[in-house]
Nucleic acid binder design. Structure first.
Lengths: 236, 236
DNA sequence: GGCGGTCAAGTGGTCAGACCAGTTTGCCTT
DNA sequence: AAGGCAAACTGGTCTGACCACTTGACCGCC
């Protein structure tokens, strides 16, 4: 068991999370004005520089607009936030948002297929050893959460093989979304990581430089969880 | 001519940009330690809270790691930054990065096709009027940059019709990347926005709820700029 | 009545200095 | 060699003062 560093949350982190929760939860609507920094600091019992740090980060994330001399206003995150906001939408108030999960699984399937094709085209034989290594590690692993980590490593190699900075950064954003939620998602993802033979076949197709097969195999693999989730939603 | 607000750059913005430029430009390599906040503030001739604001934002963007009591270190942005970093990669040091443009155009084509299919499946007839409105505005427009804006409005409607938060946020990140560069990109994108009939046909396919046609038309439309760019690169 | 100028009050932006909290390194003792 | 302690360094936070911008109200002039 690996011991992790215990990290105390900083004051600006607390402020950031609180305001973000209110924005995403709808309590703070687009166009609405936030209290002045001085007021926020007073109400929250913290210093103004700490409030400023949080607000500048919220601004960077596309959730608020800060203008000197005027009140800070809430933006419509659906129009202004980028993909990096995804982790916060997935896990909101401590619970997983099922609609966001569905959207992630869908995007993962559609984009994953394209990335696998690119990897077959561009990664080819040089990529195969790393993929097979990840498959071997996945095969040896019993712990469900650790299995997910091996699968993530596998897909990291695939997206590197695609040789596209856009897809690489996209992968990072998506990984950042579900990595914190892995313990909760591991059960649902188990059937997928259980199909080691599919991971193996995809590695083979990529290594052989066969985009058509790679795309199909990737779609087949990534369809498993999407279907599992759809079934779960029907049962609920 | 619309007059835009003149915005003075703040001190934390300047610090953020400078450190970000050094990280993305390679002067600050992954694993390397940044000078202490106090040192940075002294060297840059600014206050420490301003430095902190910038560093916390850089940390949020995945470019550095800040830990209390230890030095702040540089992270490998390729592994840790998300899609929201794209604007900064596209326009680095005032010049457009051709490799990033190529990657954007490719991803735009592959993802745009999927989004158009989803929009045809989910947006359907309710989406059509807005699409046709955007097409009409595009047809009336002569200014190349303004044409791009109409095209962006068109695609915003399409991605809304896809009814997926992941693709919506993705669109926001991509738009944030090329929107500041529109004046520079307008020439290259002109053949695409000149194909109003293709935009029209795509709107029709989406309105008719025909995913197959929508995907094909979207791919055809988005292939234009990709091909133009490939040609430009060969000429250079 | 409409427009322009001025002022006050509010907002965000920045700074200096002090103090708190965590990490690392060096030195001493067992 | 290992453990403990202190110092020096790091980041984290606060207070209070001042700067810069925006908005709204009021007044004077045409």
């Amino acid at each position: 068991m690996a011991l992790k560093r215990v990290s105390q949350r900083s004051v600006p982190d607390e402020v950031f999370d609180q305001v973000l929760g209110d924005v995403l939860g709808g309590e703070l609507a687009p166009g609405q004005a936030l209290p002045a920094e001085r007021k926020l600091a007073e109400v929250l019992g913290v210093s103004r520089p700490a409030v400023r740090e949080a607000l500048q980060r919220l601004s960077q994330a596309g959730l608020i607009e800060v203008r000197q001399g005027d009140t800070t206003t809430v933006r419509d995150f659906r129009r202004h936030a980028g993909l990096d906001l995804l982790p916060r939408l997935l896990l909101l108030g401590g619970t997983l948002d099922l609609k966001v999960i569905a959207s992630i699984l869908e995007a993962r399937l559609l984009v994953g297929r394209e990335v696998a094709e690119l990897a077959a085209r561009r990664g080819g034989a040089a990529l195969a050893p790393r993929l097979h290594e990840a498959v071997a590690a996945l095969r040896e692993e019993q712990d469900p959460v650790a299995q997910q980590r091996h699968a993530l490593t596998y897909w990291e190699h695939v997206v590197d093989g695609a040789d596209s900075i856009v897809f690489r950064l996209m992968f990072n954003s998506l990984r950042a979304a579900y990595e914190p939620a892995l313990p909760a998602l591991a059960t649902m993802l188990a059937p997928e990581v259980g199909r080691v033979s599919l991971y193996q076949a995809l590695a083979d197709a990529i290594g052989a430089g066969d985009p058509s097969s790679a795309g199909e195999l990737a779609a087949e693999l990534l369809s498993i969880t999407k279907a599992e989730f759809a079934k779960l939603e029907e049962d609920a």
